[in-house]
Design a protein around this nucleic acid. Structure first.
Lengths: 336, 336
DNA sequence: TGTATATTTGCACACGTTTGTACATAAAGA
DNA sequence: TCTTTATGTACAAACGTGTGCAAATATACA
């Protein structure tokens, strides 16, 4: 664990000034070719690595982009992370992922770390407990570009890449209605989050349009698990009017429902239809395979990064609103 | 997008020296209480954030730990990430995740970024294309603590948290043999990686012990997908001696196999037994539910972080080998 | 009042890098 | 030979923060 080698060390060793070394390393034309070669050879030989803290202290931005997600182990987010990492790498950026764990305090800490470390930019989807956007606004204050995707703070002037949750949930509900289902339930997350609110509105409005009087919306603030899904179905089937179709925001919840339906000897889709948001692989190995709403993670990732990069290169101003809608689509399978 | 506020700005505004502000912000006892309160109030008011680049330039380490994984959207890794993030947060650290995408060049770039930015430490699982450990050794050179988990470079002196892949695969193979399966195949990744090599050895040795002559090992270097799994089974069933059991390293592969088995009207587990590494949720919603080998991600995450933290706090020296084995366990379900 | 001690603040330098400017040397032109 | 220009290198200051040391002020004690 020797001391880190610096340009001054190199300079001393080669009997030149450290400014010459600095220029040589960055291929500045004002340095003699032989000097440059000598410096580069020495640097390579001794594994010199720029100290970015010193560089950034002078105001130069780095190439690391922070990505904040509520949960890394949700298919939707992990797919986006994966695509985003690749897209960014091709443009010369490194993606660094942070998980807020649906926790407000952690989200704030993450943002503070990002500001303190001077990241080049931030792509974020907020936690379900986030109601205040002060910490995100701070990014703008410090001149760090920010792009929201999926879940966002609606009071912020910044680019947003969103899914057309309202339209697709409307469409899904209508699809179930047209299939003859009478009592459609809707399971989703806290509706102060745009995503869940849009889905709720799509669901409700479709019911209204078709004059359905049965409306059963469950807004869950707990962690979505298979167990919770089982319990949900138990509760639902305990009521007077039992649903014959469920649109759900969570794959885990829906898996639990499907497992519990077997226990109840409910046939899917005859007795109970299921539609779920997401591309979880489990949905296609189940029997019957679940009808899902796919949210085109590729497109979201590409769009979000494209917008961020434009802000980093100052091609686009920071702190200016702009919303891109990405179309989700229903993947018709066997559960309806 | 105003200029970033610094301690000098605060000092000028409050008519004190910036060193006093610096001390006040870090609760140095050598500063008057009233002065400190004044400074803290002003800092809070104006959203002052320390510039870590300046701090780190002076040799102080930060609290950000880098986590490198080959693929974020593999259940094994995303579970570890999730647990690790929480464990680290409780100890006051922030985890920043990087995906190498099973690509050597990206892995090298990530390490270089980590060195340049002076992260506090690194927890890593190497890509399947990594055969040279020079970049990881560089971390030690620069005094950055490193802990490997799961996949590692065996020529490196550094703590490693590994799964007892040899023993558990031996056990799984033996289990199949005792169940009466005659022709057991093994599907895994490139065996220059310790994980896959250990599994192969466990498999082979169990066969030898029980004098089984049928041995079919497939070492795949492509990306594991459901499609590839389907193709695998097609190929396997095309041979003269068709396997009646498969131990596989990949959930996706095995899902493909299971789906293809249906096409072939092969009954699971009667005609074909399946055991797969991992905790993917898909394995428990399938019918039949798959017997899996669970690798206790919690324990791996906790151990890895514990070791890293000790190195960060210099409680443990950097660059000293030590290997912790974590016990995997077979979760017996319906596919055998 | 004067001296000793405790408390608080200011000063100056360092960390590693970049960059504008000045200096030195070499080549070219008169 | 002397100026002019081109080329290469050195110098010094700056980025924001932390810290040893000196200075200043306040408090205690004789």
């Amino acid at each position: 664990m020797q001391k880190r080698i610096t340009i001054k060390d190199i300079a001393k060793e080669l009997n030149v000034h450290h400014s010459t070394v600095s220029r040589a390393l960055r291929n500045d034309p004002r340095v003699n070719e032989s000097t440059r070669d000598m410096v580069l050879a020495y640097a390579r030989e001794h594994d010199y690595q720029t100290n970015m803290n010193a560089v950034q202290l002078r105001g130069v931005t780095n190439n690391t982009v922070a990505l904040i997600v509520p949960n890394i182990n949700h298919t939707f987010f992990s797919d986006i992370i994966s695509h985003l990492t690749n897209a960014a790498y091709e443009s010369g950026y490194i993606i660094s992922v942070f998980q807020s764990n649906e926790d407000f305090a952690q989200e704030v800490d993450i943002i503070n770390t990002i500001i303190k470390q001077n990241y080049a930019g931030v792509i974020a989807s907020i936690s379900s407990r986030t109601t205040d956007s002060k910490h995100f606004k701070l990014l703008n204050t410090f001149g760090i570009p920010l792009v929201f995707f999926d879940r966002m703070c609606d009071d912020m002037q910044t680019p947003k890449v969103l899914v057309n949750n309202y339209e697709i949930t409307f469409e899904a509900t209508e699809y179930l209605i047209n299939k003859g289902y009478e009592r459609i339930a809707h399971l989703t997350g806290p509706t102060h989050i745009n995503v869940f609110n849009d889905r709720l509105r799509g669901y409700t409005n479709a019911l209204v349009k078709h004059k359905h009087t049965f409306e059963l919306n469950m807004e869950l603030d707990e962690e979505f698990t298979i167990e919770l899904g089982k319990q949900c179905l138990i509760n639902l089937m305990d009521a007077n009017e039992k649903p014959d179709a469920i649109i759900s925001s969570s794959t885990l919840l829906t898996m639990g429902i499907a497992l519990q339906a077997r226990e109840f000897n409910l046939r899917i889709p005859e007795d109970l239809a299921l539609i779920v948001f997401g591309n979880h692989l489990g949905t296609i190995v189940m029997q019957p395979q679940l009808t899902t709403i796919s949210q085109s993670e590729y497109e979201i990732a590409d769009l979000a990064f494209e917008l961020l990069e434009k802000m980093i290169t100052r091609e686009m101003p920071i702190g200016e609103a702009c919303t891109k809608l990405v179309n989700a689509q229903i993947i018709y399978r066997e559960s309806c």
